[in-house]
Computed example of a mutant assay.
Amino acid sequence: MFGEHFGAGYLTLVIIAVGASMSALYADISYYLQYLSLNRTVLDSTLLAMPKMVTRLFHWTKAMVR
C-alpha cells in the first residue's frame, strides 16, 4: 500500500502507535481519581512521574547531541 520503502519505518510506526494508545488511555486518569476524592493519589503520582520524565528528557537530548 505504501511501497517497499515503508517497511523500514514499520517498527517506528508501531512504537508511536502504542505510545499514543497508552497516552490516550491514561490521559484522564487524574480527573477520575480526583472525582473519586483520591486527590492525594493524584498528587503523589504526579510528584513521582515528574522527576522520571525530566530524567528521560535529559538522557534523550544527551543521546541526540551525540
Rank of each mutant, 00 (worst) to 15 (best):
A17T: 14
M64R: 15
R56V: 07
S37L: 01
T12D: 11
M53P: 00
V65L: 14
S23R: 03
M50G: 00
M50L: 15
L25M: 15
T61H: 08
A27Q: 04
L47W: 10
Y31Q: 02
Y32F: 09
A20R: 05
E4Y: 10
V14I: 14
Y26P: 00
F2L: 13
P51F: 10
R66E: 04
V42A: 04
L13C: 07
Y35K: 15
A20M: 07
R66F: 08
A8Q: 10
I16C: 01
V42I: 02
T55S: 08
W60I: 09
A17L: 13
Y26V: 03
V54K: 06
L57A: 14
Y32G: 07
M1L: 07
M1K: 10
H59A: 11
A63S: 08
Q34E: 11
Q34G: 07
G9P: 01
A49G: 12
I29N: 08
A24H: 02
L38P: 06
A49R: 08
L48N: 07
R56I: 08
I16S: 01
V65S: 13
I15F: 15
V54C: 05
L48F: 13
N39W: 05
M50Q: 14
T46K: 14
D28C: 01
A20C: 03
P51A: 05
A17Q: 06
S23F: 12
L25E: 09
L47H: 05
G19I: 01
F58T: 09
I15M: 14
S23V: 01
F58A: 09
L25Q: 15
R66Q: 11
G7H: 02
G7M: 02
I29H: 10
L48S: 11
M53E: 00
T41Q: 13
T61K: 11
A24I: 02
S23E: 02
G9A: 12
G19Q: 02
A24P: 01
K52I: 07
Q34S: 12
I16M: 03
Y10H: 05
I15D: 06
P51N: 04
A20V: 05
Y10R: 08
S23L: 07
Y10D: 00
L13W: 09
Y32M: 06
L43W: 08
F2W: 13
L11F: 11
M53C: 00
H59T: 10
S45N: 13
N39G: 10
V42P: 09
M22I: 08
F2K: 06
H59Y: 15
T46Y: 15
M53N: 02
Y10V: 11
H5C: 01
A27K: 07
M1H: 06
L33S: 02
R40H: 01
G19D: 03
Y32V: 06
I15H: 05
Y35H: 15
L36N: 11
G7T: 04
L33Q: 09
Y35V: 03
G7Q: 06
E4A: 09
G3N: 05
F58M: 09
G9Y: 12
G9F: 12
L36Q: 13
S30A: 09
L33K: 10
V54A: 13
A20S: 08
Y10T: 04
A63H: 07
R40N: 10
G3F: 03
D28K: 13
G3Y: 06
M64N: 05
F6H: 03
Y32P: 00
L25W: 14
G19R: 02
L13S: 13
A27I: 02
G7P: 00
L36E: 14
A8I: 12
S21W: 14
G19F: 11
F2S: 08
